[in-house]
Every structure is written in structure tokens, then in C-alpha cells.
Simulated scan of single mutants.
Amino acid sequence: MAPRVPRDVEQEYPTAEVVAKLRRLADALETEKPFRIQIAGERIRVPAHATFSIEHERGDGEEEIEFQLKWKLDDDSDEDEDDSESDDEDSEDSDSGSADDAADKAVV
């Protein structure tokens, strides 16, 4: 397995794609199964035991809500479990330059 490179990406999607991703995520959370998602061209596997949080930020004339899933990079103990459906496909990539710390973060 290739080493994981630090990454901090924000990707915009059409509403229909967001709805589909959220439905698959909700199904995976409800059934306590791992979840696979493709964000800006990279396939990401979210383990079933990932921590889910909702974040709200306000400042500089705008507000933001983020749905976050976090887990430790070495915490893939449920690797052999079935993943929720197939990966999503992206049509456009948008990378930013800063790195994320010790946990993967999938903002869906």
C-alpha cells in the first residue's frame, strides 16, 4: 500500500449528487457498515466506527455547516467488512494546499 499523502480538499457537487452521497452515507451509518466515497478523484474508505460530527462556523459575512467523519489512519480494523455500494465518481477536481492532521476527514 502506498503511503498516504497529506491532503485538504473541498469539492462542490450538484444537488442531486450530494443527495445520493448523503443517502448512501445514511444507509452505511444506520447499518454500521464501512462507507466508500470518491472525492476529487481519490477513493476514500470510511470505517464503520468513524466518529460523526456536525460543525457550524460563522465569520467574515458567511456561515458554513460541515458534516464530518473522522478516524485514525491506523484504525482500519474493519477492513474485511462489506462496503456500502460502489464508489461515487467525480467530474471535476478542486484541491487546496493545506494538510490535514492525524485523522482523515471526509466532508460529505
Score class of each variant (00 low, 15 high):
residue 107 V to M: 10
residue 35 F to L: 03
residue 45 R to S: 06
residue 53 S to Y: 11
residue 51 T to A: 15
residue 20 A to G: 04
residue 31 T to Y: 15
residue 47 P to S: 13
residue 105 K to D: 02
residue 60 D to L: 15
residue 95 D to T: 06
residue 41 G to K: 05
residue 79 E to D: 15
residue 66 E to W: 09
residue 99 A to C: 00
residue 46 V to Y: 07
residue 17 E to H: 05
residue 25 L to D: 06
residue 3 P to K: 10
residue 105 K to F: 03
residue 73 L to H: 06
residue 15 T to M: 13
residue 18 V to A: 02
residue 20 A to T: 07
residue 108 V to A: 11
residue 91 S to Y: 02
residue 6 P to Q: 08
residue 45 R to K: 06
residue 9 V to L: 07
residue 104 D to V: 02
residue 58 R to Y: 09
residue 63 E to Q: 08
residue 36 R to M: 11
residue 18 V to W: 03
residue 4 R to Y: 03
residue 29 L to W: 08
residue 89 E to G: 05
residue 91 S to N: 11
residue 34 P to R: 08
residue 71 W to F: 13
residue 21 K to E: 05
residue 96 S to C: 08
residue 63 E to K: 01
residue 5 V to L: 14
residue 65 I to Y: 14
residue 85 E to Y: 04
residue 22 L to T: 04
residue 14 P to G: 04
residue 102 A to V: 00
residue 37 I to V: 07
residue 10 E to F: 12
residue 24 R to P: 12
residue 91 S to W: 03
residue 18 V to G: 03
residue 35 F to K: 10
residue 108 V to D: 05
residue 74 D to T: 04
residue 104 D to N: 10
residue 95 D to W: 15
residue 82 D to W: 14
residue 82 D to A: 15
residue 93 D to Q: 02
residue 42 E to I: 00
residue 90 D to G: 09
residue 2 A to N: 13
residue 23 R to Y: 01
residue 20 A to N: 06
residue 97 G to A: 09
residue 79 E to I: 08
residue 18 V to K: 05
residue 45 R to N: 03
residue 58 R to K: 07
residue 38 Q to Y: 14
residue 44 I to D: 10
residue 38 Q to L: 11
residue 44 I to H: 04
residue 103 A to K: 09
residue 40 A to M: 09
